[in-house]
């Protein structure tokens, strides 16, 4: 396998308040290869955003806490860095794009000044002319006329704002871009435009990406690898081929695909997953998906499953214990 840019090993994060302890992320492993895009898929509360925030040490200080694990960025552990060192990384080598473009932009600063700020923070000593040149360059890159740099965020539409945010994120040519649901707040046709742009820029600049999304369609369009997250654990990971074309799947992944209304075929009912995600303050003892799983066996309730590996594919499910290739029918008969 090629060189890794980001290697998360056994990361666990909790949120602790007076009343309760929320286990947001529980021992996850994630690897992103250089120039690759990893899609982190899951529903609200699965721990996707928490994972992203802990990479950059941006967890809320008084409640969020990393309890175990390493986050290695090009071989150095980010979690051991002090505040000064990590600030050098943030926005410099690793940049982040959030879901809501309005909250990431300062409403009283022109977009040009905001991009300039991002450039200056990591490139001291650039001349005024050079900075201006770079701003124009970045805006052109995301498809905005450089003449609009003197405008304020409210003069831009939602899609355009997200482009500005992406221009800011790419201002210092980061090696890794973390995008947290970057297109969720946008209309379909605008989403398509922004996704195309992200894809094109990534290919041209060779940026690695961590794409956080709940939309399997977005994953299919731009990711190379996929990790499916559920209640703080990675239940299945692999290449897009493993996930979209492979035969063996975690029951949750299967449920996610079944839940999406299909455009090509007309089914009367969706195969929804019954029930809800478990309470993160009180996770089940065995498999976290067992209460909602239609293949649930005795062992699933008692024993927490281990991850089983294929070459590129990994699964965390008792159905696949010891071997990856296994007929689903067998799983069903065991249950009966």
């Amino acid at each position: 396998m090629n060189e890794l840019i980001l290697d998360i090993d056994d990361l666990s994060v909790i949120y602790k308040t007076d009343l309760e302890t929320v286990k947001a992320v529980n021992g996850i492993n994630l690897k992103i290869g250089k120039g690759k895009t990893l899609g982190l898929v899951g529903e609200t509360g699965a721990g996707k955003t928490t994972t992203a925030l802990s990479i950059l040490k941006l967890l809320p200080e008084n409640t969020g806490k990393v309890t175990s694990g390493n986050v290695k960025f090009e071989g150095t552990n980010l979690l051991e860095m002090n505040e000064h060192e990590i600030r050098e990384i943030r926005g410099g080598q690793i940049a982040m794009v959030f879901q809501d473009p309005m909250t990431s932009l300062n409403p009283v600063m022109t977009v040009g000044d905001q991009i300039a700020e991002a450039i200056i923070m990591h490139n001291e000593g650039l001349s005024k002319g050079e900075i201006e040149k770079r701003i124009d360059e970045k805006l052109t890159m995301v498809g905005i006329l450089p003449s609009r740099k003197t405008e304020y965020p409210h003069q831009f539409s939602g899609g355009m704002k997200q482009r500005v945010v992406i221009a800011m994120a790419l201002a210092c040519e980061p090696k890794l871009l973390i995008a947290d649901e970057p297109t969720t707040a946008l209309d379909v046709t605008i989403q398509a435009q922004v996704l195309m742009m992200i894809k094109e820029l990534r290919n041209r600049l060779g940026t690695s990406m961590l794409m956080i999304t709940h939309d399997l369609g977005v994953v299919a369009k731009i990711c190379d690898d996929v990790a499916v997250m559920y209640a703080g654990e990675i239940v299945e990971a692999g290449t897009v081929h493993d996930i979209f074309l492979g035969e063996d799947h975690h029951p949750y992944t299967e449920g996610l695909f079944g839940s999406i209304p299909n455009l090509s075929s007309r089914t009367k009912r969706l195969n929804s997953i019954p029930g809800l995600m478990p309470d993160p303050t009180n996770l089940p003892e065995g498999c976290i998906f067992a209460p909602r799983c239609k293949y649930c066996m005795d062992i699933c309730i008692r024993v927490h499953p281990n991850t089983v590996f294929d070459e590129t594919h990994s699964l965390k499910c008792h159905l696949f214990d010891g071997k990856l290739r296994r007929d689903k029918q067998e799983g069903k008969s065991e249950k009966q």
Partner: peptide, 13 residues
């Protein structure tokens, strides 16, 4: 509009 929907299908990637 129909084209713009990202479908969970990598053959149309």
């Amino acid at each position: 509009l129909l084209k713009a929907i990202p479908e969970p299908d990598i053959s149309k990637r």
